[in-house]
């Protein structure tokens, strides 16, 4: 099995059926380490379904989803791991995970894939800071001795909590929400909620960050800021990003690699420039009844 060395996520023959509807049909693609990969396509193409499969919210009807940590040689274990029936396998500085075998929370906790949602899912009645602490739950849980030490008030937990707060503070500073730290998340304006959701996902220390339409509902200035945030996340943490986006200004400007879905089928895969000029992609987009989107694509593509 030849998987390129710098591949982080390897999606093979992914199929997801809902009753008679095939939402994703035999989809294969790779996400490279340290790159921003965009997944685009018209409404209902199956993009969110792909995300739900990767992050374990859906169990794919068919297909294999491999994710690598560490050494590139880990990909050599892919077939052996598949045959063994295990969820993951480690060898010399590398670990390989099969995501389709893992429950959703372990995909975040162990395989370190974080995500945001198309309809923002914050904890609206908790403060901004609390939102970011919940994201560091597993580490804090261990530090609190699974609650036992914490109840007794041992100092080791206090130190861990201060570290978690410092980390949250650093992310808040980065997304420009430091002065709203003690406000309930539900009170933030829409654009700020989107940024908070990204910061919250980053607090889980992911190797792969999956963003479902992060620029939806943002104004041009906010979406330019988003571009910068995503580029900086990649630059200084090496976090790879998988991005669903309708806003072509975001897609064309920051992505290294674009995959186009239409009716659950991959119709194009390549660098942004090549995809933009692809006749099948233009047809797929122009075939969409949504007028706003047609205009948008025409402006970008035409």
């Amino acid at each position: 099995m030849a998987v390129a060395g710098n591949t982080l996520l390897h999606v093979e023959h992914l199929t997801m059926r809902f009753g008679g509807l095939v939402a994703v049909d035999d989809l294969s693609f790779d996400v490279n380490e340290g790159e921003i990969t965009a997944l685009i396509g018209p409404n209902g193409a199956g993009k969110t379904t792909v995300f739900n499969c990767i992050t374990g919210f859906y169990h794919p009807s068919e297909g294999r989803l491999g994710l690598r940590h560490g050494d590139a040689a880990a990909w050599d274990m892919l077939d052996a791991l598949t045959d063994s029936g295990a969820r993951y396998r480690s060898q010399r500085g590398g670990t390989l995970f099969l995501l389709e075998r893992m429950p959703d929370y372990l995909i975040t906790h162990q395989a370190r894939v974080a995500r945001t949602f198309q309809n923002i899912r914050l904890f609206p009645g908790m403060t901004v800071l609390e939102n970011l602490l919940v994201a560091q739950h597993n580490r804090l849980m261990r530090a609190s001795g699974y609650t036992l030490f914490g109840i007794l008030g041992l100092s080791s937990y206090g130190a861990a909590e201060r570290a978690a707060i410092d980390k949250a503070r650093a992310w808040l500073e980065r997304v420009g929400l430091l002065d709203r730290a003690d406000d309930p998340a539900g009170e933030l304006p829409y654009g700020a909620q989107r940024r908070l959701e990204i910061a919250r996902a980053m607090c889980t220390d992911p190797v792969l960050l999956c963003l479902d339409e992060p620029a939806a509902g943002l104004n041009p200035r906010e979406s330019a800021e988003l571009n910068e945030l995503l580029l900086s996340i990649r630059a200084d943490r090496g976090t790879s990003v998988l991005l669903i986006e309708h806003d072509m200004s975001v897609v064309m400007e920051i992505s290294d690699h674009v995959i186009v879905l239409d009716y659950g089928v991959k119709i194009a895969d390549g660098p942004p420039r090549a995809v933009r000029d692809d006749a099948k992609v233009i047809a797929a987009y122009l075939g969409v009844a949504d007028e706003e989107e047609v205009a948008e694509v025409e402006a970008e593509v035409g």
């Binding site: 992050t55 919210f57 959703d104 929370y105 372990l106 975040t108 906790h109 974080a114 995500r115 949602f117 899912r121 914050l122 904890f123 609206p124 009645g125 908790m126 609390e130 602490l133 919940v134 994201a135 560091q136 739950h137 597993n138 804090l140 849980m141 609190s144 699974y146 609650t147 914490g150 109840i151 008030g153 937990y157 919250r200 996902a201 889980t204």
Partner: peptide, 27 residues
């Protein structure tokens, strides 16, 4: 005390949004 510990915060987060909890690695 529990409310100020991770487990209590996870309880409240669960009440707010269970799906989001799962996406953050909470069992």
């Amino acid at each position: 005390r529990l409310r100020r510990l991770p487990v209590g915060r996870a309880w409240e987060a669960l009440r707010e949004d269970e799906i989001a909890c799962r996406s953050l690695g909470i069992n």
